[in-house]
């Protein structure tokens, strides 16, 4: 009998135990990143939408585990442009690969692929919907810097309306009794559905429009995101707030010692360059943690 297929499509399906188990696995890979666990396996990376950062991280993870990598980085060279359906592409590639890592511009693409494929699917981002390996690396970064995921003050800053990463992080941390602080301009505030979710599940949250030294003094984690011009219907409002949600080194005077600054990258100007040298800055290590988190995830879906 075939063992149950273990795709990773959405962070919302992961239990507290599963998250902790993946973190423990990531920790092991960080201590010992190179192994031959996946010797003889083939990992396909199908990027229907380009994302160099995520693809390199996955391909490095696969290579460090001893797997071979096939796939495409640029959708222009695939038969999708000739009108091939996603299903047909998946049906073809599953004949060659043991696991498919896919990024797609359409929402729900990875879930659909996981339903038609006989091999596990890892969602490397499907439109504005889900990007669970980003969330896993965020969680691993939080765990690594705080020693726990439980009972933390997590401050989410910037675009909380459209930010896929902050929504997924919120859902994943629901298992760990967090206190959230939502810091955003009115137009980009945390959507009501997530606040309702917090209230229904007894998750504490506070909202602010101001972003300054005093507001962030209690933070354990300061998760920054970009406030983008194209998200505003009212450009006057954008002009008013565009410089408000920029983190500068001068704002870190009252920060807790354990506080770390995270950002999904790429950043534009929302974290001033003078923060990079501050001991609270963690966003580059965070990206590196993605490698270990992805090694753990690839092994997990392959039941290895």
């Amino acid at each position: 009998m075939m063992s149950e297929k273990r795709s990773l499509v959405s962070i919302n399906t992961l239990s507290r135990e599963k998250i902790l188990q993946l973190i423990q696995r990531a920790e092991e890979f960080e201590m010992n990143p190179n192994s031959k666990i996946l010797d003889g396996k083939i990992v396909a990376t199908l990027f229907f939408e380009p994302s160099t950062r995520t693809r390199l991280s996955f391909e490095t993870a696969a290579n460090r585990l001893g797997a071979k990598v096939i796939g495409f980085a640029d959708p222009k060279i695939t038969s999708g442009t000739k009108g091939e359906t996603l299903k047909d592409t998946i049906m073809m590639v599953q004949n060659y690969a043991d696991v498919i890592v896919m990024r797609h511009y359409l929402e729900g693409a990875a879930l659909y692929a996981s339903e038609v494929a006989k091999v596990p699917i890892i969602n490397a981002g499907d439109g504005a919907n889900q990007h669970p390996t980003q969330t896993m690396l965020d969680l691993y970064s939080i765990y690594k810097t705080q020693g726990t995921l439980d009972n933390l003050n997590v401050f989410l800053v910037g675009d909380l309306k459209y930010g896929r990463t902050v929504h997924s992080l919120l859902m994943a941390l629901r298992h760990f009794n967090p206190t959230f602080h939502f810091i955003a301009p009115k137009e980009l505030a945390m959507p009501e559905e997530y606040k309702a979710y917090c209230r229904e599940h007894g998750i504490k949250y506070v909202e602010y429009e101001e972003f300054n030294e005093d507001v962030i003094a209690e933070a354990d984690i300061l998760y920054m995101t970009r406030v983008q011009r194209e998200r505003f219907t009212d450009l006057m409002e954008y002009e008013r707030v565009k410089d408000v949600y920029i983190l500068k080194a001068s704002m870190l005077g009252k920060a807790r010692e354990n506080m770390k600054i995270l950002h999904p990258l790429p950043r534009v100007n929302e974290i001033a360059y003078d923060v990079d040298d501050d001991p609270h800055a963690y966003y580059f290590q965070q990206a590196q943690n993605g490698l270990y988190a992805r090694e753990a995830i690839i092994c997990d879906v392959l039941n290895m």
Partner: peptide, 12 residues
Amino acid sequence: GNPKCITNNEPM
């Protein structure tokens, strides 16, 4: 209702 949903772009 979401034009970017896979169901609106794939015969399924």
